[in-house]
Design a protein around this nucleic acid. Structure first.
Length: 171
DNA sequence: CAGAAGATCGGG
DNA sequence: CCGATCTTCTGC
């Protein structure tokens, strides 16, 4: 019980596998003041490499996207619309930029709201999920069925990529 | 260096 | 439907 998922899970699998298999797993956030949030992941999206025009890494390796080019198991956070911190987990091996966006957990739906609840900020960029003392993932039993849909909010990515069924939702 | 747009949300 | 709010990238 309460066993943390090690980094090889993120490194040895691609973003599609991780996105689907994180559904039902438990996201843990320890605020360090005695308050701990534990909630099962119920919605994810995969962003898959340099070809995927919806993936920030398709723009190349920049200070912002650098973490996605590294080995999996690290956190990629970025600020969107000037106010929301998006929580992503890097997957795959070095130089295979991929990430999984966490869009919702049982007690918080929506990536922007989730970032707010977890009190994320730039200091989480590059955080290691295997060793962090403030955020990590634990194994847990899934209850329900996973459905797939197109990803949300990426109309700019073009027909090919915006229609990929790379969003996973627990029902 | 100015300008635009963004993996969103909440109010009207 | 639209504004909030600011980082990042692009183009001149």
């Amino acid at each position: 019980m309460n066993k943390r998922i090690p980094n090889d899970f993120f490194q040895n699998n691609d973003a599609l596998f991780v996105a689907e298999n994180l559904i039902g797993k438990t996201l843990v956030r320890d605020f360090g003041n005695g308050e701990v949030i534990r909630s099962k992941i119920i919605e994810t999206e995969a962003y898959f490499g340099g070809d995927d025009l919806a993936c920030h890494a398709s723009k190349g390796r920049t200070p912002r996207t650098d973490i996605m080019f590294q080995d999996g198991g690290k956190i990629y956070v970025y600020l969107i619309y000037g106010m929301y911190w998006m929580l992503n987990f890097v997957t795959g091996k070095e130089n295979h930029p991929q990430a999984v966006l966490i869009r919702g957990v049982e007690n918080c739906i929506g990536p922007g709201r989730l970032g707010r609840m977890l009190q994320l900020d730039k200091s989480f960029y590059g955080e290691d999920l295997e060793t962090s003392n403030r955020i990590w993932i634990e194994y847990s039993q899934i209850q329900g069925t996973i459905i797939t849909t197109a990803r949300i909010g990426i109309d700019y990515a073009g027909e090919i990529w915006k229609n990929k069924p790379w969003r996973f939702v627990l029902t």
